[in-house]
Design a protein around this nucleic acid. Structure first.
Length: 193
DNA sequence: GAGAAGATCTCCT
DNA sequence: GGAGATCTTCTCA
């Protein structure tokens, strides 16, 4: 498995969000490997996007969004959950893609251990759920996803054809009019239809 | 330093 | 369908 190059990520956030669908998120750990296919993603921009963390400027929390593309931006929210983002755009241009849902294609048993659920479709159909299933925490904040290691994104081996749906973003109160949420049509791992 | 809000999930009704 | 859990970060004084 080969990680996607930084040039893949350092493009327009919306383009990257769309093209991340079907790609594989690889989690390598001493207890085994988990491979998860990205089935749902949301684009978050900069100052022109009121829903984005970066819209009010650079802070110690969101500075990664202003940095080099291809790095992970993991943050803690609601006292309970981590959300996993991939940094996009060029340096000093804020942008990130929130991975909202994945389909576990390898390491299902390990992922099930991280989360106590019965069916695999409940395992990772939400931002907070997938980070738990893949055991992604704040230690992965700033992790380079373009290098083979504990966590990276690779091109998919199985290039199945699928239809991409554009929809309004979820869980936010501002900037909802933007159709910046993308998911694979008819995929049961998607969080909401 | 205090208060408020938040890109969510799970449990309970 | 609704509310609680629970903590980081930002804003304002």
């Amino acid at each position: 498995m080969k990680p996607l190059p930084r040039s893949f990520h350092s493009r327009d956030t919306v383009v990257v969000a769309k093209e991340l669908l079907g790609k594989e998120l690889v989690r390598q750990a001493d207890y085994g490997n988990i491979v998860a296919r990205i089935v749902e993603a949301e684009a978050y921009g900069g100052s022109d996007d009121p829903a984005s963390h970066a819209h009010r400027g650079k802070t110690p929390r969101n500075y990664l969004m202003f940095g080099l593309a291809g790095f992970a931006y993991v943050y803690f929210i609601y006292g309970n959950h981590y959300c996993f983002n991939v940094i996009t755009e060029r340096e000093n241009i804020p942008g990130a893609v929130l991975v909202r849902a994945v389909e576990i294609v390898e390491g299902l048993k390990i992922a099930c251990k991280h989360r106590k659920v019965k069916t695999s479709s409940e395992l990772s159909n939400g931002p907070g759920k997938l980070t738990k299933a893949l055991n992604i925490t704040k230690i992965h904040n700033g992790f380079d996803l373009t290098k083979t290691g504990e966590l990276f994104i690779s091109d998919s081996k199985t290039k199945g054809s699928f239809k991409t749906i554009e929809a309004k973003r979820i869980g936010i109160n501002v900037g909802r009019e933007k159709l910046w949420r993308f998911y694979i049509k008819d995929n049961r791992f998607v969080s909401k239809f």
